[in-house]
Amino acid sequence: MLSYFAKRIASSIPTLFIIITIAFFMIRLAPGGPFDSERPVPAEIAANLEKVYHLNDPLPVQYGYYLLNVLKGDFGPSFKYHDFTVSELIAQGFPVSIQLGLLAILLSLMIGVLFGVIAALRQNSAIDYLVMGLAMTGITIPNFVMAPILILLFGVFWGLLPTSGWGELKHMVLPVIVLSLPQIATVARMTRASLIETLNMPYIRTAKAKGLPTRLILSRHASRATLLPILSWLGPATAAIITGSVVVETIFGLPGIGRHFINGALNRDYTLVMGVVVFYGFLIILMNLLVDLLYAWLDPRIKY
């Protein structure tokens, strides 16, 4: 187990290296630079800026410097937010994104699994159709539609929750709901399909034949097998929720990391984009590794 873990960590280093390299040169290919603005700065001043930010060195030299700094854990200063380093910006944004993401995943799991189990046990009944219908609606309504509707209802009309902002528990309610709705639907559908399949397995039939109550069959025998596909979804989904909540962050005015990614790319804030890319890459690799380890724990057939 430990050697497997070490091997996986080691194999992630070249992956990260490739990510850095591709991202570094891709962002430089985009036309325009960090200091292009409505008001082009005089050539003399542009030269001063480039000197301060080492943009006047040849690209391979800049790449070399960047790699060296990353090895030292230094993502450099932001080109756009002059008062902060990239590491500081990530350190400030990440707790917000991870709190939101984890809460949303937790909520999706709880409600999604519950819905899925109900639907599977009452397969092809009115309840099944109702639950799955709701789930389908959850998937199809995009978050940039759902968020403003919820804000209008809960924030503007009823005044129950803040429309946006960050700091207290009440600020998290709406964003977490918006983030988790499509995931609830996905989890419910997966649970339903997976449970129905599991319930048709011979070993479940054996359990039933032994006369075990349904509650025990579900909790002892069916649950592990049912959860496996959800587990493999969990890794990428957690990463996706944390990294991909840009729309939700923008609409709710949340100081998360996703906005840095998009704004960084639009502003040609080279160091910020690179920092977030490397960080996301690391996060996704880590999530997948965790899921693989959980797999081994849940599925007795898998051994590392």
Partner: peptide, 18 residues
């Protein structure tokens, strides 16, 4: 000073007295 780039968000916050 609240940084709000999305004007629609800003309008909603104003309507909610924030």
């Amino acid at each position: 000073f609240h940084p709000i780039e999305d004007k629609a968000t800003e309008l909603k916050r104003f309507r909610a007295d924030e």
